[in-house]
């Protein structure tokens, strides 16, 4: 399947300890240091005034990071914009790497010390391309093998489920990955790297 605009969201555990605007200075610092590998970081945009919106957006040429508030659930979302090489499996691996690296950076940020922890018992995978990945069962069947292979590897044999996030044909195709364990993001990153 020739889809490149893929995204992954990792949810934040206990988000009540955080304001979404807490991330504005952090993302500015990321730009100052150009800290995200393989990304040209461009700008920060504050959408905290939008109900269940994109929250705080870190715009990069290759893909955007955001502290996304979709469905009222705070998490780090990475949305790939530029095409990647390799198979669909390779592309999932790449974006998972980028989002997990982002999570690790945030967890280590002194400005959020001990207030931020990501949970990994649930991930959201979004295909941001209605032409190539319409929100229907056929798309799910086509992507399921690549996703299963990926999560069997990085969840280290832990059981997991893949399910369609919404069946509304107007929504983008999205898959929820659920498991009953929540290893640290750095553990997952080590497995995916």
């Amino acid at each position: 399947m020739d889809v490149h605009r893929l995204g992954i969201k990792v949810f934040i555990a206990e988000p009540v300890r955080l304001q979404v605007t807490d991330f504005i200075p952090i993302f500015h610092t990321w730009i100052q240091k150009q800290i995200v590998q393989d990304h040209l970081l461009v700008d920060v945009h504050n959408y905290s005034h939008i109900h269940h919106g994109p929250g705080i957006l870190l715009v990069a040429h290759q893909g955007n990071f955001s502290i996304d508030m979709g469905d009222g659930r705070m998490g780090l979302l990475y949305n790939r914009k530029q095409p990647d090489s390799g198979t669909i499996h390779d592309r999932f691996v790449t974006i998972l790497k980028f989002v997990l690296r982002g999570c690790c950076l945030l967890e280590a940020d002194p400005g959020l010390a001990r207030r931020l922890r990501f949970r990994t018992d649930e991930l959201l995978i979004i295909a941001n391309d209605r032409l190539n990945t319409p929100n229907e069962d056929a798309t799910f069947l086509e992507l399921q093998p690549a996703l299963s292979a990926l999560f069997q590897r990085i969840l280290d044999g832990t059981e997991f489920t893949l399910s369609r996030y919404s069946k509304d044909p107007k929504e983008r195709f999205a898959v929820r990955v659920q498991t009953n364990q929540s290893p640290e993001v750095k553990t997952l990153l080590a497995r995916v790297s």
Partner: peptide, 29 residues
């Protein structure tokens, strides 16, 4: 509906209404 799809797929997921009744999408390639 079409505007919403475009905002998601090519912009930053937000539609902005201007002071002249237009829409603007930002961060578009």
């Amino acid at each position: 509906d079409a505007l919403a799809e475009l905002a998601e797929e090519y912009s930053d997921g937000v539609l902005h209404v201007t002071t002249r009744q237009d829409f603007q999408l930002h961060y578009v390639h």
